[in-house]
Amino acid sequence: MGFFDDKQDWLRGVFAQYPDTPQGRRAALMPMLRRVQQDEGWISPERQEEIAQILGTTATEVAGVMSFYSYYQALPTGKYHLQVCATLSCAIGGADELWDELVQELGILRGDVTPDGLFSIQKVECLGSCHTAPVVQVNDEPYVECVTKARLHALLQGLREGKRLEEIVLPGKVGHEVHVRGEEVGV
């Protein structure tokens, strides 16, 4: 069964937001991708094909749009999908070392999920927070900023303990521990 078969009302609502032209119809691509990503955690080739069919475009076109945005996943992800920014500022700030650390610690590569189903990892293009490089993003949550190895381990530890992201305290310079959100602890 198609993903959108029982979501016809939702689809109609989406299409109604755009002009009733072939171009307008294609504009629904983003909301449709988002819906699948939200509900299923990734967008399988079958879903891509289904979206292409509905929009009257090709699977290539869908893959092109999808792969441009790191939010959309073409492979199944873990409960926590860690996205490490690897563009210039973060690269200079040590993103590669962070990545190696993650690979070491979790024993997975891009495309894998840890056996406990908790983690998957991915390098992404600039997240737009270069002044706080290096940056890591967990799922769709706010960024984890100025990530050091110590902070990375604290982050993983917190997630393993099942804490919500905002509950996790990251180490900083002594007396400057911060929440993931960036406020100093106790401020």
Binding site: T57, T58, T60, E61, A63, G64, S67, F68, E125
Partner: peptide, 8 residues
């Protein structure tokens, strides 16, 4: 439309 840029 059989060819496209993938990734970024």
């Amino acid at each position: 439309e059989v060819l496209d840029f993938i990734e970024r």
